[in-house]
Design a protein around this nucleic acid. Structure first.
Lengths: 220, 220
DNA sequence: TCAAAAGTGTTCATTGTACACCCATGT
DNA sequence: ACATGGGTGTACAATGAACACTTTTGA
């Protein structure tokens, strides 16, 4: 901001928050981490993880701080989505909110934190219970995730380091809410040459066992 | 922001600005509207149009206000790009800036405003003279414009209502900084069935004359 | 008559899509 | 032996990319 065009000589100051959408993948379902709202209105309804931005931190750092505190994970994948600044978006007062989404491997998540913060993993059908404009935020974030996952730019952060092609396909089916053809999916993802096939097999989910893959170093 | 996680009981407040990237297309070149900075440091260097957000307006409205004032156009195409909030992004002090880009038909622009606001249309080679993080903002906005123009989702706002296919192609060449095959381009755009061919011809740019097209009502 | 821009089709390569059966193994 | 999930290939359609000549007309 440099060549100011504003109504007042002394510009207004605002509360600025970050709201974070934490995506996780478990058991063929795409989920988001939410908190139970503690105050009226809509007490008890699920809301996103949020926190106010502080003077001495960048907004990216604020998002990292909130995410670290509430997930216990400090190296997660994080991306800014958009900023929401309508006058009445929060009934408690004017707050401008910058939304981030994060992808975590749900196995890395310490589930004891669920009680500590009174949080829970919401599956898609429940997302419409989110308060205020949080539903819209999640919609927008999901659109972004879908666009990027289509080209396999991101998404691997939702899986363990070693994963089977079945898991990867199942993740994509969860992201797009539609089922995909197994042969076409495998052909496509393998043709990208971004996966390394391991010797090791996953014997947990089938008798035959499925080969583990991991993302090639160059695409980490 | 609801379940606050912050360091202080009394959260900090911030100056929040909108910075606007106004794209225009003239004479086979993609340009942006910029202002000459009036204060040190970097006095005289080009900067984006900006303004502080006020209490009684949404951030979208703030962007509209700035754009209307500085272009004289009130129904332009506008889209939020991203928010920039590093501590030292503006040497004058901490300002969180939400960036928008707008597309205007440069013919609608009142060029007397150039003097009034000491502004100018910068072509691509000059974009790297922009102050601070404004160069990065423009890069990010251009990426978005390119993605959307590829599918002809937007871009027509940069042209007059009636335009020739040559103009449209030349616009795309300017957006992507590369030349395109005439036959393939026309085949593709016409196959989308979003254009109506008019009777009228543009006789300004060739002896033979090129048919005008306009965007079909349904895709306005 | 000629210079300058408008307009037009075909071939080939690549990519996406539909579709069904055998394999390995633990119980 | 059988149930369960793992793994594989082919044919066709759609899309994208390369490529050159004729048309119109004002000067």
């Amino acid at each position: 901001m440099t060549n100011s065009v504003h109504h007042y000589i002394h510009p207004d100051r605002f509360l600025v928050s970050v709201d974070c959408i934490v995506f996780g993948f478990h058991d063929t379902e795409l989920k988001i981490l939410t908190f139970k709202r503690k105050i009226e209105p809509q007490i008890g309804a699920p809301s996103l993880l949020g926190g106010f931005v502080c003077k001495e931190e960048s907004i990216d750092d604020a998002a990292k701080r909130v995410l670290d505190k509430l997930t216990g994970i400090d190296d997660l994948y994080m991306e800014q989505v958009a900023t929401y600044g309508d006058l009445d978006r929060d009934p408690a007062g004017r707050v401008i909110s910058i939304v981030y989404f994060a992808l975590i491997n749900i196995e890395d998540y310490d589930h004891s934190l669920l009680e500590r913060y009174d949080s829970s993993w919401l599956s898609k059908e429940e997302w419409n219970h989110l308060i205020f404009d949080h539903r819209k935020m999640v919609e927008d974030a999901l659109k972004r995730l879908r666009k990027k996952a289509a080209t396999f730019d991101i998404g691997f952060n939702l899986l363990p380091e070693k994963f089977t092609l079945t898991q990867l396909q199942s993740l994509h089916e969860a992201i797009y809410s539609e089922s995909l053809d197994k042969r076409n999916f495998r052909k496509k993802v393998l043709s990208l040459n971004i996966l390394d096939k391991l010797e090791e097999k996953d014997k947990m989910h089938s008798r035959k066992g499925a080969y583990y893959y991991k993302l090639n170093e160059n695409y980490r």
